[in-house]
């Protein structure tokens, strides 16, 4: 079966985020960018499904500026077979991303679509669910285990009280949580091979999708910072302060 994986180019997980002085956003100039960590887990899961003989082809799609091709090439080096780049320099919000992905799903007809549960820039946690709704598919969100059995996929989900398993009819959408797998690193030979794998380029207009945003960001500020407090010498002093100074116990 064919698996479609969506990946997003975001600020690298390890980079210290700084708000721009004019409060229009976060400073991304000369900042290291990388594949969203949850998307790495999505790619890894697809590759493992292929290694198990469940997936026959992995198509990776990314929406974003020209440089997003780097993240598509990374996914190809990790084991995806071909890439689709929906190229735009405009901001693409979750609903519009879901509409673009829906158009790709209609072209590619995958049996399973795997996405990260959220991107670490906008922290929205929306696109996978929106794609599932728009395409009339079931969804296994926040997945910690994915098992394909016949025409169904069983997804174990990380929920507030613990774990919950659902069975979804295929085709279906899965969004990844942290403990689904541990992504591998790409080997140098595979990075070289990935350069020769096919990568299609298209625009939102080619897919017939209007990506005008519905939400406007009025300002972006740094969070109120917490002041470091005092160091206490021992446990007795700590308990005394909690009881008599902070009055929280």
């Amino acid at each position: 079966m064919k698996v479609l994986v969506a990946v997003k180019r975001v600020i690298d997980y390890n980079v210290k985020v700084r708000v721009k002085p004019d409060n229009t956003g976060v400073d991304l100039a000369n900042v290291k960018m990388a594949m969203n960590p949850f998307c790495e887990i999505a790619v890894e899961e697809a590759v493992r499904l292929k290694e198990k003989g469940v997936a026959s082809e992995i198509v990776v799609v990314s929406i974003g500026p020209k440089a997003s091709q780097e993240q598509i090439r990374t996914a190809l080096a990790l084991g995806a077979d071909r890439g689709i780049h929906v190229e735009t320099d405009e901001e693409v919000q979750s609903l519009e991303a879901a509409k673009l992905l829906k158009a790709v799903v209609e072209k590619e007809e995958p049996k399973l679509v795997i996405l990260g549960k959220q991107s670490i820039d906008s922290d929205n946690n929306q696109t996978g669910q929106m794609l599932a709704a728009l395409t009339g598919m079931g969804q296994g969100t926040f997945a910690s285990e994915v098992v394909v059995e016949g025409d169904k996929v069983n997804v174990t989900r990380e929920v507030d009280g613990g774990l919950m398993t659902v069975a979804l009819n295929l085709p279906a959408v899965v969004t990844t949580d942290l403990r689904l797998n541990e992504p591998r690193y790409a080997s140098l030979p595979n990075i070289m091979k990935a350069k020769k794998k096919p990568l299609d380029n298209m625009s939102p207009a080619d897919l017939g999708v209007d990506i005008a945003p519905r939400l406007s960001t009025l300002k972006v500020e740094a969070p109120a910072s917490r002041q470091a407090g005092v160091k206490v010498a021992d446990v007795a002093e700590l308990v005394d302060k909690l009881k008599n100074e902070a009055k929280v116990i």
Partner: peptide, 13 residues
Amino acid sequence: IYAGNAIATVKSS
């Protein structure tokens, strides 16, 4: 946004 490293004010149309 950004794991709480930035706080955005957003308006919905």
